[in-house]
């Protein structure tokens, strides 16, 4: 157990499925409209009128995560704070609305205060402004996998010395009504605070380690990838694959077969439109003491992200 190993010291969740990581209801679908989110209660009565929903969710989840971690990110210099965020639908509705304005009344009628959010990077950028994240800031947009990928990219940045503390998460907002995937829209955000075990003041929730690869290209190396991912860690007792069984390429079956070779039984749940569902499962897994668990998600084009979550141990009952 290395003092440099990243441990999760804070979890922040805002979701129509709940805000208590350990008690998230992840069964079935939930409406992705904005009615469930109380912006005044989460962020305050003013200052967020022109902030798009996905950014509000990310700000709120970050506040919760930082508070949960005892404010530890504020204890390191701003240049030692980094953030990685995954999103697919974070600004889809906003861009759609901007398109309608430009092609309708004209570009001069675009809202100046909302216009900066046309860039997907602005979501995490706004969080960086609020929390003094000046080390680095990264937004990933790979379909479905970007949330788990943010954990890997963030851990690499910390290992490379670019920051001491990492905020990593995912945010999504409802897709426009006319979008083919609107019914599968997600809304909400998950943010984790990760820091080296040696400096963590708060009792950590556990650890997570992520691998990212593409199938079928990486299929011959899949066992090797799993060996590396599971190295020096207790074996997971189960896996959850957030994957579409109707994908033309049977990614879920390939992953489940590989996991079976390692003695890990896998359940499959259908994905939603974005990056959030696997992150909610990760937050719930880390929020409850228990055995290690693998969480995976795939995109229709073959991208796979696999995270080994190791929650803190169950209390000794002897």
């Amino acid at each position: 157990m290395s003092a440099n190993e990243l441990v999760v010291t804070g979890i922040g969740v805002v979701s129509p499925r709940g805000c208590d990581p350990a008690a998230l209801d992840l069964e079935g679908a939930v409406p992705a409209d904005d009615a469930w989110f109380d912006v005044a209660a989460e962020l305050g009565p003013r200052g967020y009128k022109y902030v798009p929903p996905s950014c509000r969710y990310l700000l709120a989840a970050t506040r919760r995560a930082v508070a949960d971690a005892g404010g530890s990110p504020a204890a390191v210099p701003e240049a030692e704070r980094g953030m990685a965020v995954g999103t697919n639908s974070g600004i889809a509705a906003l861009i759609d609305g901007m398109d309608a304005t430009v092609t309708g009344p004209g570009a001069e009628r675009l809202s100046p205060a909302t216009a900066p959010y046309f860039s997907i990077n602005t979501l995490a950028g706004r969080v960086a402004m609020d929390h003094g994240v000046k080390g680095w800031n990264l937004t990933l947009t790979s379909p479905r996998t970007a949330g788990l990928e943010a954990l890997l990219a963030g851990a690499r940045a910390v290992a490379a010395g670019r920051s001491t503390v990492l905020l990593a998460g995912s945010t999504e907002a409802a897709l426009p009504d006319h979008h083919p995937a609107h019914a599968a829209s997600e809304a909400g955000a998950v943010v984790l605070v990760l820091e080296p075990r040696g400096r963590a003041a708060a009792a950590p929730y556990g650890t997570c380690r992520t691998a990212v690869f593409s199938l079928p290209a990486a299929e011959p190396q899949l066992d090797e990838i799993l060996i590396r991912l599971l190295k020096d860690a207790p074996a997971p007792d189960s896996a959850l694959l957030v994957t579409d069984a109707t994908d033309a390429s049977p990614l879920g079956a390939v992953l489940a077969d590989a996991l079976r070779r390692f003695g890990v039984p896998a359940d499959t749940v259908p994905p939603a439109a974005g990056t959030l569902l696997p992150m909610l499962h990760l937050a719930r897994t880390l929020g409850r003491p228990g055995p290690p668990r693998l969480l995976a998600t795939t995109s229709p084009d073959g991208a796979c992200a696999l995270t080994l979550a190791r929650p803190r141990h169950l209390p000794d009952r002897t």
């Binding site: 022109y50 001069e108 009628r109 809202s111 100046p112 205060a113």
Partner: peptide, 13 residues
């Protein structure tokens, strides 16, 4: 400055 521009658009409309 952004809110000032926002106010400009609201008044113009």
């Amino acid at each position: 400055s952004l809110l000032a521009l926002e106010m400009q658009i609201a008044l113009e409309e």
